[in-house]
Design a protein around this nucleic acid. Structure first.
Lengths: 336, 336
DNA sequence: AGACATCACTGAAACGTTTCGGAAGGGCTC
DNA sequence: GAGCCCTTCCGAAACGTTTCAGTGATGTCT
């Protein structure tokens, strides 16, 4: 590995001079610059970011912690973050928590050891103890995506979850549906509760009874949500529409429908939160409430970079993004 | 930030002793150990991986460079790599090339600057100049996934691409199909050519003419592959089956079919390389040739870690994984 | 009891940068 | 031509670790 010292020697100048021309941190004579650049070229010198980080105290690296990179929602986040990092000259450290708060804490410690300048976090835990631990571990600037955390002061970019499910239910009711089931997320997740609240609110505003029986609890994962859907299909009278509250849920719902011989939308209307590429590839094309996930992520990234640059200070603020309904073929009007 | 020095002072021992305790790199008295651990606990000390890396010359970080993290195939790779890293105490640096060889080279330089110990690479370029540049940039151990590179000596884990498409075509022919179209990848990609070769070989072995007209070129992306499919559907006589050569292609194919009013499998049989969660969620459930992507990735990771540990030496070897056919509902026998 | 290993720990050098006080030299003012 | 200010470059300290030669103290063997 060739170092600054090698370059300096080869160019016949001091180490400090090489550093200043490489970072152009001070005016230098054209002659010096030429000599140094030539030496760099000839030796194929590549700066050592590790040494640089040690000296400067900043690593020009940020961390991204997501629950499941395999979920298209989060891989979209990762993609957008990577683009932002590339544009700002940052490197990106990725961690996948598999929805485990314990792993998330471990990851946060890893980030801390690695001296990342900041992290983008999609938290997967909840509760006071968890937040307390998070606070201890997160010594660097953090911006949250998707979920906020009670008692944790940080910037956050979230969806208007209530509006998302509200919008779906409102649409379904206007289309004539009265018995509307929902496959909700676990009670431990704030977004699941918000989405359920939106469902409930829409029913109320349309003067439709909220029926406990029509709420099935899933886990935002295909298998559990498949089972949740099955239980929903067993209700009598059967719902005429089902709202799915995530893209993974959508998979479980559609599988359950198909396996039990229900046609969509003829026998059952389905609408889901989350839009994905494959939502329009198959039959039926899914009616969805799309999250502006890329925009949300870009916002989060610029937020974080603002913090790092010091142009953004003060307590964390939360940005709420609005979802957009895309009516396609998986829902149909109910007549009579 | 509390340092080793702080801990040493607080415990009343030398810096070196703290280091040896923390890394237990030499036997120490229980008393010393206790004192140090206590001080660490009280100060909430977290080791600085940056300084450690500088001193040791290894960063305990590996890089992952993929063409598109948004593609479920690559997000599965990322997930598996992350698990392997976690298990081995490595951090993971992620880069997304968006299929651009230029970006890939930039990423490789980033990795080099960051002093990653090794990288897992899914190369997106081809050609002599590209390989030459790659060689200059890749000074650390590299293991390739999905694609090998002519003239680039590295470990690699690849699919038996020929067998994948061969298997699909063979199955279709045995089911009675004779006019089988294919949406292939770009000619610049070796895997695309291999998959096409498997298609061709299967036809030959069944004594079916290879017809240029039935080969449409896509780009392993939904939009271009949608158009490629459309062109295929315009052929006369029309093919009775289409083989899709990637999961993104599958999306394009199914969209095109739906948009033009073709039912699958009644009007057209479709089978694709790549299995994905949503392949069984909708109608029809897709017949696919599944890649053992997680196993392949695990193999690649252990390969890399073996190189890093020095337990694996010598020239690179390439492992070839076998795909598995999963017959589902998107293909049907052709009678008469 | 003296010589000598063994053991536990200390102290300082080194990793490759950045940064800053300071030296050398040139040009300007008076 | 003396003094001064810029401009340009040099040299060394420092960042937080690891590592290793070295120092005492303790135990062992003859």
């Amino acid at each position: 590995m060739t170092t600054l010292r090698d370059v300096a020697r080869h160019a016949g100048v001091s180490i400090g001079s090489v550093s200043t021309v490489l970072n152009n941190t001070a005016p230098v004579s054209p002659a010096l610059k030429a000599k140094v650049l030539k030496a760099v070229e000839e030796l194929g010198y590549v700066p050592d970011a590790v040494a640089r980080s040690l000296k400067t105290g900043r690593s020009r690296t940020i961390g991204l912690i997501v629950p499941d990179i395999t979920n298209p929602h989060f891989s979209a986040v990762a993609s957008a973050i990577e683009i932002a990092c590339d544009a700002s000259g940052y490197a990106l450290l990725l961690c996948n928590t598999t929805d485990s708060p314990a792993k998330e804490l471990r990851d946060l410690h890893l980030m801390r050891r690695q001296r990342v300048d900041g992290v983008i976090l999609v938290p997967s835990g909840s509760g006071e103890a968890y937040v307390a631990e998070l606070k201890r571990a997160a010594t660097m600037p953090v911006v949250l995506i998707d979920r906020t955390l009670e008692g944790f002061d940080a910037d956050a970019v979230v969806l208007d979850n209530r509006a998302a499910s509200y919008g779906i239910v409102d649409y379904l009711v206007r289309a004539g549906h009265r018995r509307i089931g929902i496959v909700a997320g676990p009670t431990s997740m704030s977004i699941a509760e918000e989405r359920l609240a939106g469902y409930r609110q829409a029913l109320e505003e349309h003067a439709i009874d909220y029926i406990e029986d029509l709420v099935a609890r899933g886990a935002y994962q295909p298998e559990p949500d498949y089972r949740a859907t099955a239980s929903l299909l067993a209700r009598r009278p059967r719902p005429t529409a089902i709202v799915s509250t995530s893209n993974h849920t959508m998979i479980g719902v559609m599988k359950a429908l198909a396996d039990q011989g229900f046609r969509c939308p003829e026998d059952m209307s389905v609408a889901s939160i989350d839009d994905v590429v494959w939502a329009t590839a198959f039959s039926p094309k899914m009616t969805v409430m799309a999250q502006p996930i890329v925009e949300m992520t870009e916002l989060a990234a610029s937020r974080l970079f603002g913090r790092l640059a010091g142009t953004m200070t003060g307590p964390g603020t939360v940005l709420v993004a609005q979802p957009a309904l895309k009516v396609r073929d998986s829902t149909r009007p109910l007549t009579g």
